[in-house]
Amino acid sequence: MLDIRNLHARIGDNEIIKGLDLTVPAGEVHAIMGPNGSGKSTLSYVLSGKEDYEVTEGSVTFNGQDLLALSASQRAAAGVFLAFQYPVEVPGVANMTFLRAALNAQRRTRGEEEISTPDFLRLVKQKAPALGISQDMLRRGVNVGFSGGEKKRNEILQMALLEPKLCILDEADSGLDIDALKVVAEGVNALRSPERSMLVITHYQRLLDHIVPDVIHVMHKGRIVRTGGKELALELEETGYAAYGADAA
């Protein structure tokens, strides 16, 4: 599914990803843990095509396609989805309008028919309640006036509607209390499938109690420095990232 080889990326003169290798097979959930500043969020942006970052070396292959040759919107249509750590507020664009425009844009890019209005409304009606997304939240501007938890749930709703092949969750639990975290985790778990891979980026072990990964990678200074099973999370919870030269925080 996703194959990253010797990836180097920088922003300005600052190299952040320094020779990263990572393979995520279809249907697997991989977690990336690591201290602040290890390059976790940068990896998520580089994979989803944020233009501020420059890839200087290496390759990213996604279902046989050269991902780095695609624009952000083409990557989305190819099945890459980034759930943002801080979802962006877009005033003046109604959430519903946005969801439909995104879904149809992806369909057009893939050469598929656009979804009809009744079908789209049915789809939203089917997905939104489980995530606690109200009609009001659908009518409002994208993420405008949403609480932290509402923003995260809105990210998961987008994920559920767009049905990506690779979900990248960047600190999906940040700013959430335990109840909100459970709603988000349930939404994510409902999307687990043999055709869908997930890359769960998190600083803390807590999230991985709810979204249990198949594989855990430890990232440090722009590289994967250790890979193990889900028990690795517990070990990191005990010892912190000190072993990797980082502050215990």
Binding site: A72, A76, F98, A102
Partner: peptide, 16 residues
Amino acid sequence: FYLMSRGLPREEAEML
């Protein structure tokens, strides 16, 4: 970037 990351081509995202 947020709009583009959801599949909207740049021009469409700008227009929106």
